[in-house]
Amino acid sequence: MELNRLQQRFEISLNRADNQLVSYLSNVQQQNLKVAEVHQLEGWLSELWQMWCRFCRTTVVASCTGCSTQAAGPIAAVHAGRGEVSYIAAKQRNGNAPPKHGHNSVLRLEPTWGHIARLIEVIQALSPANTNSLLGGFGTVPQIDEVRIIRNAAAHRNIQTYNEVLAISAGYKATGITHPVEALLWIDPPTGRTLVQARMDDMRIASRNVCA
């Protein structure tokens, strides 16, 4: 697999999602979303988060089982196959691989690939040949995790997850929210874009760096 092509496909999907959001925003009052509009935004967020997690997983698995980039050329495999990569990803602790390698085929046992801190640990445990590129690319965009926090709060609505969303409001031009997904529309002062659009820009940066 050529990582550059993987990145290009991801960015096309990301641009499509961005365009969908722009269209959505042109038809709603951002500070007074109706119930149906909240549900629509929540569905869009779910798809965006799965897209990001899928990109992270595919990039790491390919890096471990053999791939290439235009700049670096071939990247040699360091693990026997996807099952072994999955096993180590599921069993690693604090970036340390399990003492014995095995095989896993139950995907729900794997970590949340889009969770930046967990992803960094998994990369360290797997130690592919392009580890430095992966750690550098993914490690420089920690604010992507805000998307996970909001998505998690929408999926598990309680006072604790709600407060986790409020805790990130200081970095944005924030308004009051009644549903966690409304935080996606807070304004990012440096860019003037919504929170989620600014974090999608981070996803673009990360994907370009890890696949260079």
Rank of each mutant, 00 (worst) to 15 (best):
Y24S: 03
Y24D: 01
Y24G: 06
Y24I: 07
Y24A: 05
L25G: 09
L25A: 06
S26M: 06
N27K: 14
N27T: 11
N27R: 14
N27E: 13
V28R: 07
Q29C: 14
Q29T: 15
Q29R: 15
Q30S: 10
Q30T: 08
Q31A: 11
Q31S: 13
Q31C: 10
Q31V: 08
Q31W: 10
Q31F: 08
N32G: 01
N32P: 00
L33S: 04
L33Q: 02
K34C: 01
K34P: 02
V35D: 12
V35S: 08
V35G: 03
A36T: 06
E37R: 03
E37W: 02
E37Y: 04
E37P: 00
E37V: 01
V38E: 02
V38R: 05
V38T: 06
V38L: 08
H39M: 12
H39Y: 08
Q40V: 01
Q40L: 06
E42F: 07
E42V: 12
G43E: 10
G43D: 11
L45M: 08
L45N: 03
L45T: 08
S46H: 12
S46L: 11
S46D: 15
S46M: 12
S46F: 09
S46W: 05
S46K: 13
E47D: 13
E47S: 08
E47V: 11
L48T: 00
W49N: 06
W49S: 05
W49I: 09
Q50F: 13
Q50L: 14
M51C: 07
M51P: 05
W52M: 14
W52V: 15
W52K: 12
W52H: 15
C53I: 06
C53E: 14
C53F: 00
R54P: 07
F55K: 09
F55Q: 08
C56H: 10
R57P: 08
R57V: 03
R57M: 06
T58L: 02
T58F: 02
